[in-house]
Design a protein around this nucleic acid. Sequence first.
DNA 1: TCAACAGTTTAGAACTATTTTAATGTAATT
DNA 2: AATTACATTAAAATAGTTCTAAACTGTTGA
Lengths: 142, 142
Amino acid sequence: MAYAEQYIDKLRKSGLRPTKQRIKICEVLFDADKTFHFTIKELVKIIENQANIKVSLATVYNTVHAFIKKGYLKEIPLNSSQSYYDTNVTHHHHFFDEEDNKLIDIDQDDVDEINIRKKIPGKKIRSVEVIAKIVSDNQSQK
Amino acid sequence: MAYAEQYIDKLRKSGLRPTKQRIKICEVLFDADKTFHFTIKELVKIIENQANIKVSLATVYNTVHAFIKKGYLKEIPLNSSQSYYDTNVTHHHHFFDEEDNKLIDIDQDDVDEINIRKKIPGKKIRSVEVIAKIVSDNQSQK
DNA sequence: TCAACAGTTTAGAACTATTTTAATGTAATT
DNA sequence: AATTACATTAAAATAGTTCTAAACTGTTGA
């Protein structure tokens, strides 16, 4: 397992010791060649299905938050009862399908650069995100 | 009180009967010439301070949600433990100050029109919002 | 005026996501 | 192997939000 090195490295850089549970979390999050969106609940379910390792919610929350702090994961701002996370940490945007409660990536290239002309004294912009909410287009069905 | 008519109208259009409590909520939300951001907790506190009317959380939640459904209020997407609402229902964007947990409006005019080139079949865009997270600019202080 | 009814309000309970706690377990280092 | 420092865990705590069921209010019509 050549990936394991990477995971241990990521964990160490996040200030976490590489344990069985945490390496399993890394496998789920970083093994795929695709990036994806998830909630904590979903992540726990995936781990339970894929492995015979018990992981408590607390461990998952702690690990996910350490990765966010380090920049290995992103939190997606959404007014939903639960938080959504993204393994795609490149600069990009999102559709949120309000009917299916699904997130869809929008590449940075698909949106013109966003230039905000308003400035706040003493503050700098850390991130800019676009959320486009989408619903069924009934017009086109008629 | 000339405004009362408007409030009663808004309530009726939202499918709610105009009661003392609900009219009070309207007074707080729609009386000011300025728009503002609030959380449910803050709204309850304002009502308690301004009036001798008891309002339960349940009534406030129900009324706020009825107004959102009708488009008289907007929910602001933010990954925060509590929901933020906006009496400004025009198309605009936000700064979110991560240190003070404060929202600041950005006029639509201060951001170039956002053109998303990616399309999702059968879906249409209902809203597009920009959230720019800001923090202290330590660079400029050094 | 009064009874009946439909819709409201309310306190408190329930629910859900998240965080904390504190006891037990484990990895790393000597 | 012993020590130490950190991890894991279940369970409890917390906080925002939603639900519930009982009491209440105001309107209508006789």
